[in-house]
Design a protein around this nucleic acid. Structure first.
Length: 918
RNA sequence: GGGAGCAUAGCUCAGUUGGUUUAGAGCAUCUGCCUUACAAGCAGAGGGUCCGCGGUUCGAACCCGUGUGCUCCCACCA
């Protein structure tokens, strides 16, 4: 029993209420899902990094998912939202290494096993933070299905897929030029490199021509060599020791005479050949390029073509290696400075100039990525990309917002390059390849199988095999997420995977479209022969209100738990959703959370008002009346002692407020359903917000409000409770806590709102809605006139209506008189003097008050209106006298224009009349 | 260099296949209210050359072209 007979607090205070309900929902098992006869609605959470915290981007994503899941749960679906986290190989390892360093422990001094022990301890300690944050936010995930990408079954699934792809020859091992992170000392995929525009320097360096007869083994000294030299531009003077050629364009006249010659690399005086290749742009720099195959992808390719030696002058940590000969052991950037100095001293630096360039940075460690040749594992992507491309082109998978990302997705898949999946880390799935001492290897799911295969393949017995030291890229595990959370890889064809897959919608940030979304589609198409999800909803990026990215260094990234403490989870959810246009970036401003908190408070106060009515209820004569009415209903069976299933609307006398709100509610329900279908959640929330604040609180409740100290009609009261419940239901997916609380406080209820099923909205009655709009407009206009003429709110007026449809207004006159504080309403045919007049549509409202009338204001207003109308009329008349218009426009449009004309004419007449009486 | 998107009120954005009187909303602003749910509130109001130019059309915020300005993605020019 959740009905509290306690006094309701002045303002809504979310803290206890939110934790109370989350607890209750969990206890009742509402978030749990098992396959059954209903249709599934499945969402898998984009797994956050296990040791991370939720930032505003997550908050937006999770809120969107929770809204969709809650809406589905209330719409007859078996809603299943799977939570979990990602081991985040490189990010977590970096954190653990940093933690160890603080403790004075060097990772390099630890064994793999020791390190992993620390890592798992770390994960145990911090891995729950994100889960508790999800709970605070109200996420209705099925906790029993929580999955971690390094769970046993998941680990096995990843290995299984690796072995399978290897056997299908879609995975290979080889030496390639890859992106090297010198801070984490690991390879990276192309996607993990972020390019930034930076101002670098271009150094112009002299390379002297080596003497003809002494191409090799000559030591250069300025005194005895030919004075001839060439100038080469480079951004990276510290790599010159790795040069194995210089290259010009074969067409370039300037360098023709150098054919067959060599140059001496400065400082180390190594002789390297001058070669020619079309790749070189004659017009750029000096038209001649140094070739350093070990440290530049283009140089590497040219090196391959011309069969050049590769001299790797860098160590894995970015210091210069023995091969560099000079500055060995110094960091690349330190070495650069020193080398530039030396070149200057020796007069070998011709000039340096500022240069705009793009530099690759590691997404995780933010260090400058080094192109490096290294033996790594790769996935062949071309073949996998085809079905993934097709499923989006065919519209089998729909991307929202439509069109915006489809092109990027297609382009990437059409030009996809092989995926480097090995990482020189320990935290992750260890690559299931086993090597003998000579480096011969086999791939298998475990050591035992590996031995077996090895022995067969190489006809050996009992060879000692050693497993590959490296682990797999995190994304090589997360691309299986929608399948393996249901054990679809490790235990194919089980009930869960068959029921829940493909999932319904994936909600994620557009920044991981290549990392994750595209690859999940590939994996799904490869292993299930079916898309992993039907819709992809990309949320925008959360920025601060000045439009800057949120970042630690700017300090503009608020803490989620602080925000929830300050405003409540419902308010946070409201704030982030209301300012989140589908697909666009969201400019986060705490003011929107304040708006959310105020909305909570508004709801709370509406509840208080209704509770106040309840208290005044006891002496009312309603029970008798209600019973009498019920007896008259055919279906009523008194023995059952229950309320008959007759809509209460049938029992009550004419009540325009109820009639109107009922239809207004249906109208909004239909609109909201439609918006859900298009994933326009922010729009849906805006409409619900306005329905509640404006239509329900500002209009409806005021219309039915009983006079001071008088009880409310019980039937109206009960109908109002039902409306309130219905709007709470509509709002529940967005603001689950307060809606559940109010739902229980409204009536003494056992059942919970979270699982109340939506009923199909009725078709709204246009006439009633229109009448409501007219009523609102009349009220507003009269209030405006009162305001402008300084009639105090408390001062009563007499209202006279000049209309041809008296019935239209007699329906609503009680509301009208109350809302404009009129002591009487009368219907008149002729104008009355000394009144203020208001014209709405074609009806005229005369306001009679004790106040002296300022005719000036009145006259001015009317004349302004008149001018407008005349202008308008002339434009309509112009249109109608245009023969082309009359010939070409649709009949309806012409009819409309004619009506506009008539209406305007009538209205002008009315205003002119009014003016003449002033 | 290639591609995509955006430009509407001070700010953030709606605006469905071109036609509903004067282009809408929220926030902000201004005026008046401590009115017996709510000042975290109530009642009102003001505010726009729909980025510029040209075209199609009886009719354009919407369609086409063009210019300008932003944003994002992709790409190996030292």
């Amino acid at each position: 029993n959740f009905f509290y007979h306690m006094e309701l607090s002045k303002n809504y205070s979310p803290a206890e209420i939110e934790s109370k309900w989350y607890e209750h929902w969990m206890q009742k098992g509402y978030f749990k899902s098992e396959p059954d006869k209903r249709d599934p609605f499945t969402v898998v959470i984009p797994p956050p990094n296990v040791t991370g915290v939720l930032h505003m981007g997550h908050t937006l994503n999770e809120t969107v998912q929770d809204i969709l899941i809650r809406k589905a749960r209330m719409s007859g679906y078996n809603a299943c939202w799977v939570p979990g986290s990602d081991h985040a190989s490189i990010a977590t390892e970096a954190k653990v290494v940093a933690m160890l360093k603080e403790k004075g422990i060097d990772k390099n001094k630890l064994s793999r096993e020791e390190f992993l022990k620390y890592a798992f301890e770390w994960k145990e300690k911090y891995g729950d933070i994100i889960y508790s944050q999800l709970k605070k936010l109200g996420c209705s995930v099925d906790w029993d299905r929580t999955t971690f990408t390094m769970d046993d079954h998941y680990y096995k699934a990843v290995i299984k897929v690796f072995v399978d792809l290897y056997n299908k020859e879609l995975i290979y091992r080889g030496a390639r030029m890859i992106n090297w992170d010198t801070a984490a000392k690991t390879a990276l995929s192309d996607e993990e490199v972020e390019y930034k525009e930076v101002t670098g320097k271009l150094y112009y360096i002299k390379y002297f021509i080596a003497e003809e007869n002494s191409i090799r083994h000559t030591t250069y000294s300025p005194q005895n060599s030919t004075p001839d030299y060439i100038v080469i531009a480079t951004q990276r003077p510290e790599t010159i020791m790795g040069d194995t050629a210089v290259c010009a364009n074969p067409e370039d006249e300037r360098y023709q005479k150098l054919k067959g010659k060599s140059v001496l690399v400065p400082l180390i005086n190594k002789s390297v050949p001058i070669i020619f290749d079309e790749y070189v742009d004659k017009d750029f720099g000096t038209g001649i390029l140094k070739i350093t195959p070990a440290h530049d992808i283009n140089d590497y390719n040219i090196g391959l073509k011309h069969n050049l030696a590769i001299v790797d002058t860098l160590n894995e940590d970015g210091t210069l290696s023995e091969a560099a000969k000079i500055h060995v052991g110094e960091d690349r950037f330190v070495a650069r400075k020193k080398i530039v100095e030396e070149l200057k001293e020796k007069g070998l630096l011709v000039k340096e100039e500022e240069y705009q360039t793009r530099l690759g940075y590691s997404q995780r460690t933010d260090s400058v990525v080094e192109p490096r040749i290294s033996t790594q594992w790769f996935v062949k992507m071309k073949e996998l990309a085809l079905p993934a491309l097709q499923s989006v082109i065919d519209g089998e998978i729909k991307i929202h917002p439509e069109g915006k990302f489809t092109a990027t997705y297609k382009y990437w898949l059409e030009n996809v390059k092989d995926w480097c999946i090995s990482r020189q880390l320990w935290w992750g799935q260890q690559i299931p390849a086993w090597y003998d001492e000579d480096g011969k290897f086999v791939v298998a799911e475990n050591e035992e199988k590996a031995k077996e295969i090895f022995n067969n393949q190489y006809s050996t017995i009992n060879v000692q095999l050693k497993q590959d030291e490296d682990v797999l890229d995190t994304w090589f595990s997360s691309w299986l997420w929608p399948m393996e959370v249901f054990k679809g890889i490790s235990n194919p064809d089980n009930d869960d995977i068959n029921y829940y897959y493909p999932t319904s919608v994936l909600v994620t940030g557009q920044d991981i479209i290549f990392f994750w979304v595209a690859r999940m589609i590939m994996a799904g198409m490869e292993y299930k022969k079916e898309k992993p999800f039907s819709d992809v909803y990309f949320t925008g990026m959360v920025r601060d209100k000045q439009g800057r990215k949120m970042s630690k260094s700017l300090g503009n990234s608020p803490d989620l738990l602080d925000l929830i403490d300050k405003y409540g989870a419902d308010a946070v959810r409201f704030g982030i959703m209301i300012s989140s246009p589908a697909g666009n970036d969201l400019l986060f401003d705490e003011a929107s959370l304040e708006q959310g908190r105020n909305f909570n408070n508004k709801l709370w106060n509406a509840l208080k008002l209704i509770k106040l009515w309840e208290a005044k209820q006891s002496e009312s004569d309603l029970p008798e009346r209600m019973q009498a009415m019920m007896m008259s209903q055919v279906n009523f069976n008194p023995e059952m002692g229950t309320m008959p299933l007759v809509p209460i609307g049938l029992l009550i006398e004419e009540n325009f407020a109820i009639d109107w709100f009922k239809n207004r509610l249906s109208e909004v329900q239909l609109e909201v359903d439609n918006l859900y279908k298009q994933f326009k959640l922010s729009e849906a929330l805006k409409i619900i917000y306005s329905l509640i604040w404006d239509d329900f609180c500002s209009w409806y409740l005021e219309w039915i409000k009983p006079d001071f100290e008088k009880p409310i009609d019980e039937i109206v009261y009960h109908k109002t409770l039902t409306f309130f419940e219905q709007i709470m239901q509509l709002l529940h997916p967005f603001m689950p806590f307060i809606t559940e609380e109010i739902y229980h406080l409204l009536r003494d209820r056992e059942e919970d709102l979270i699982i109340q099923q939506f009923e199909k909205p009725e078709k709204p009655d246009r006439k009633i809605l229109e009448q409501g709009n007219t009523l609102k407009e009349v009220i507003t206009s009269i209030r405006d006139v009162r305001n402008k003429n300084q009639i105090k709110p408390k001062e009563k007026i007499k209202l006279h209506i000049q209309t041809e449809h008296e019935g239209y207004f007699s329906d609503i006159q009680d509301i009208l008189s109350k809302q404009v504080n009129a002591e009487s309403i009368s219907y008149i045919e002729d104008t009355i003097d000394n009144c203020l007049s208001v014209i709405v549509n074609k009806d005229k409202f005369l306001i009679q008050s004790e106040n002296p009338i300022n005719t000036g204001i009145q006259k001015e207003q009317l004349q302004k209106d008149l001018e407008h109308l005349r202008k308008f009329l002339s434009s309509v008349e112009k249109k109608l006298s245009n023969t082309n218009f009359v010939q070409n426009a649709k009949k309806d449009v012409i009819k409309l224009e004619k009506k506009k004309k008539e209406d305007a004419e009538t209205k002008i007449k009315i205003i002119e009349e009014s003016l003449s009486t002033i």
